[in-house]
């Protein structure tokens, strides 16, 4: 049994976000982090590893520096890491990306008791699309928005979050599950894990390795293989400055309430 966890390195949008004058994101000036939902996916896998002793493989597609993130996940307890990296893969949208990752998973070989975990969505694009699209390419059943996972043999019972509750879903392995932050509390790296992280295997899957995989259509990868195009990106205008009220006492509050009443909004 093995668990493959798909992860993404993303700019930390909770910090200061830098936008260049042309409206594109100044990625160079931003910190990168492991996508938060993906950490819940890794934790879900590590919990199953604690229970069953299965192998946990973390996979990402990205530029070579993404290796640093993979090492951190090895330091949390993953056993192996795979970095999918090639110039030909650059500019892929979710459709093209899911195809490449599905091919990589297919290359590793998916067996009957294997599970693929993903985070629900990445904080840079917030699309939540790559997980289900990998499942479709691999022909796997999917359960998204998992907030609770119980494993019993080859059967998983999953609580899938809805806006006003949840559904309980039963699914058999192999399957793909996307995880939300309510699922668990991700563990930290451990000191021992850190010192082992640089000794664990890190494989790089490049274009040549994957191009002949049956799930890959070489015309459907990278920018050219992406059905969607960005027409334009832009920064929204900042709302005009309001007014700072003087003081912070009862008179200030009375004045504010007066204005609101005058505008008929209370």
């Amino acid at each position: 049994m093995k668990i493959i966890v798909c992860v993404k390195q993303v700019p930390d949008t909770s910090g200061k976000v830098a936008v260049k004058p042309d409206g594109t994101l100044d990625r160079a000036s931003m910190q990168t982090i492991t996508n938060p939902d993906d950490l819940n996916a890794v934790e879900a896998a590590l919990k199953l590893k604690d229970e069953t002793g299965c192998e946990v493989i973390v996979v990402t597609m990205g530029p070579p520096p993404a290796e640093g993130m993979l090492r951190e996940l090895l330091a949390r307890g993953a056993d192996r890491a795979v970095l999918i990296s090639a110039r030909e893969f650059g500019g892929s949208d979710t459709y093209a990306t899911s195809q490449i990752i599905a091919a990589a998973i297919d290359h590793m070989g998916l067996e009957n008791d294997d599970i693929v975990f993903c985070g629900r969505q990445a904080i840079d694009g917030d699309t939540a699309q790559v997980g289900p699209q990998i499942a479709e390419k691999l022909g796997l059943p999917q359960v998204t928005y998992a907030q609770d996972i119980k494993k019993d043999g080859d059967s998983l019972t999953i609580q899938r979050a809805l806006e006003d509750g949840y559904m309980t879903i039963k699914v058999k392995t192999p399957c793909l599950i996307t995880c939300i932050k309510e699922l668990n509390e991700p563990r930290y790296m451990s000191v021992g894990g850190i010192y082992e992280a640089y000794e664990k295997p890190m494989e790089v899957y490049d274009y040549n390795l994957l191009k002949d995989n049956p799930l890959i259509d070489v015309n459907n990868i990278g920018l050219a293989g992406s059905p969607t195009n960005i027409l334009i990106s832009f920064t929204p205008p900042q709302k005009g400055a309001g007014q700072m009220l003087e003081g912070a006492d009862q008179a200030t509050c009375d004045k504010l309430a007066g204005i609101l009443a005058e505008k008929h909004i209370i």
């Binding site: 090492r71 951190e72 330091a75 930290y188 790296m189 000191v191 850190i194 010192y195 992280a197 640089y198």
Partner: peptide, 13 residues
């Protein structure tokens, strides 16, 4: 690299 990760890990904790 190990030292950097130890710092990051303990800082997070």
């Amino acid at each position: 690299k190990e030292q950097e990760l130890v710092r990051k890990m303990v800082a997070d904790f």
